[in-house]
């Protein structure tokens, strides 16, 4: 029974990683850049929700919506100010800019909200359902996280495959030049991708802090790195890859904690990643790109 319980918490943690990883993977797919500040957008999302619900007593749903709106705007502003001027620049310059943006967000948060941890009260409630005569107890947070992840996943797949805007995003990620010839505005499409990724980051932030209630300006950093790992794990640029990578990462982490050692769980997660990349250099669902000679 503890196996099942661990599995479920693994999937739940993995769901959070998956939602964050989606942001990484979509932005990578379309702008070919690693947005290192993505993890910190999560943190901002969590703070907004925290203040809305705890400080101003808003309804949790409003709190979540508000934090999504703020993060969406934040994502667009970051793209316009810091990344858009660098579309033609070398990848390393963009990476450093993203790192700078990450520092900026963390330090702004520290100034605005101090570095003392805030205790985040779950927006979902603290109850749980008991199964098998109470042998297996699953908290609502865990359940809601998994459900939200599934809903987002389905929504996103439908959006990208069925709507015109979604398809234009795929077109841009495949061939910017050809997409332009179709009359698609590439910059708008990239901004849209940032907007979606950031809105998802807000949701991830709220879910993450509902499960692990300590909120500080660096809350987003480690989950950000792990989700990035998950995106690479699943094959960066691939939406289903982000889901699979995220969930697997969550399961591996929880199992490593439960059955091997808590202290080395992160090391084990990263070791598995390395093994996967050695066997499959472009991740589980990644496409092989070979250079034309």
């Amino acid at each position: 029974m503890s196996f099942l319980s661990n599995l479920i918490s693994g999937i739940s943690l993995g769901s959070v990683y998956a939602i964050i990883a989606l942001g990484y993977t979509m932005v990578y797919g379309i702008a070919k850049m690693l947005n290192f500040a993505h993890g910190d957008v999560i943190m901002v999302g969590a703070y907004i929700c925290f203040f809305a619900t705890m400080r101003y007593g808003m309804h949790p749903i409003i709190g979540v919506l508000l934090s999504m709106i703020v993060c969406t705007l934040l994502g667009i502003v970051i793209d316009r100010l810091a990344y858009k001027p660098l579309r033609q620049a070398p990848a390393l310059a963009v990476l450093i800019t993203a790192i700078g943006m990450s520092y900026f967000l963390q330090n702004s948060a520290q100034l605005l909200w101090t570095s003392s941890p805030k205790v985040f009260q779950s927006v979902i409630g603290n109850g749980s359902i008991k199964l098998f005569d109470g042998a297996l107890s699953i908290s609502y947070v865990t359940l809601v996280t998994i459900v939200v992840c599934i809903v987002i996943m389905i929504g996103l797949v439908l959006f990208v495959n069925k709507t015109k805007i979604g398809k234009s995003m795929r077109a841009v990620s495949e061939d910017k030049g050809a997409a332009q010839l179709m009359g698609i505005n590439v910059n708008t499409t990239i901004s849209l991708t940032f907007a979606i990724g950031s809105a998802l980051a807000a949701i991830a932030g709220v879910l993450l802090c509902s499960a692990y209630p300590t909120l500080t300006p660096t809350t987003g950093a480690m989950p950000g790195i792990k989700a990035f790992t998950a995106a690479v794990f699943g094959g960066i640029g691939s939406i289903p890859g982000a889901l699979i990578g995220g969930i697997l990462l969550g399961i591996i982490e929880i199992f490593a904690k439960a059955y091997i050692t808590t202290q080395l769980s992160d090391a084990i997660v990263f070791a598995v990643l390395i093994v996967v990349l050695i066997v499959k250099p472009t991740g589980l669902l990644g496409k092989k790109i070979s250079e034309k000679v």
Binding site: L34, A91, T229, V232, T261, Q263, L264, L273, I274, I278
Partner: peptide, 28 residues
């Protein structure tokens, strides 16, 4: 040795992972 098979962003993530693994081991 494993890094030799990779390049670009994938290589970057592997070096990141190794850094974290070394930290994890030394920490314990």
């Amino acid at each position: 040795v494993p890094v030799l098979r990779l390049s670009g962003d994938y290589l970057a993530i592997v070096t990141l992972a190794f850094g974290e693994i070394i930290k994890g081991i030394v920490n314990n």
